[in-house]
Design a protein around this nucleic acid. Structure first.
Lengths: 167, 167
DNA sequence: GCAACTGATTGCAAATTGAAACTGGTTTTG
DNA sequence: CAAAACCAGTTTCAATTTGCAATCAGTTGC
């Protein structure tokens, strides 16, 4: 693994951790898709990540402090991956990237509906979402309303709309 | 399905353009350092980008629409790279990444002062900065005050502080 | 006992990266 | 005018990374 040492610029240091094609995809699936196990991330990946790449990225993200890994009590070989505060704090980065992608790139409707809601909700919604992630990943108390449920419901509705339209 | 792509997710599509170690570094130097020529980016790069990588990334970013390239009237071999609206619209992404990096990574003070100002200024400052970039890169009218000057002055002041402290 | 499932690892070809030298030309300097 | 410096890249080549398929060893449910 390459050692650090390009510069102390925040953008550069962020890129040294997240500047590749897969790290943010893995984090996105954990954050928005609530994928917590290896096989789940592997099988349900829209982008078709290879198992060696997934294993490598999970290991790196745990090493760098964005994820934590613990054993699953129900299965001795199952590992549960959770976001740390460092991972949860990426919500505004995802929101900014999602908004930019939605504006300039050929996104599909059902996959961009969550980005749209996140963008429209603004920092207040992001903070509620982060509270919910702290509940799901860090044993924080449960929030009153679930932002994730809203996002997922909107996604499913958009998906259903598209499928009935092309049926 | 898409021919060359992986999925229509905004995050994925954004990563297909910006998901590598150098693209955002190049854009950062053009945006915050006002580097407009090849040699300028090559020589003044804090991270020491190689010339073949820089050439490749500039070509790609022009192809994808984040930069434009034109000849310099003062020098027949000089090329001027400019941000397009698509490139300028990355300001909030840089702000979010900078804030995250500043919070969790071992940044150096003088290289993170601009990120700090951008973060504290919020969306209102970002919009003023983007207006200024439209002036510098897209022939828009000049804004009353220069955000870039403020950022650069703060960077230079921090640099001078550090150099006098370690002298 | 055994098939399915678990988080990975291995082997291999292809693509990408990075450092340094080099190219063909233009502009500045002495 | 000639040498030096400057210009945007390109070339070369070794090392690394990626992507894919097959495989692994242990665990679980039946």
């Amino acid at each position: 693994m390459r050692e650090t040492g390009r510069s102390g610029c925040p953008i550069n240091l962020t890129l040294e951790i997240l500047g590749d094609r897969w790290s943010l995809i893995v984090l996105r699936d954990i954050m928005f898709g609530n994928r917590r196990h290896f096989r789940e991330m592997l099988a349900k990946s829209d982008e078709g990540i290879a198992s060696n790449i997934l294993a490598d990225r999970l290991k790196r993200l745990v090493e760098r402090g964005l994820l934590s890994r613990r054993d699953d009590a129900t299965h001795k070989q199952k590992a549960i991956y959770s976001l740390t505060e460092m991972g949860i704090a990426l919500v505004p980065v995802f929101a900014a990237m999602g908004e930019w992608g939605r504006r300039f790139l050929p996104v599909t409707e059902e996959l961009s509906i969550r980005a749209e809601l996140l963008s429209e909700g603004g920092p207040a919604l992001w903070e509620r979402f982060m509270q919910e992630l702290r509940h799901l990943h860090l044993d924080a108390p449960a929030p009153e309303v679930s932002v994730l449920n809203e996002l997922t419901a909107a996604y499913r509705a958009a998906l259903a709309r598209r499928q009935s339209a092309t049926a």
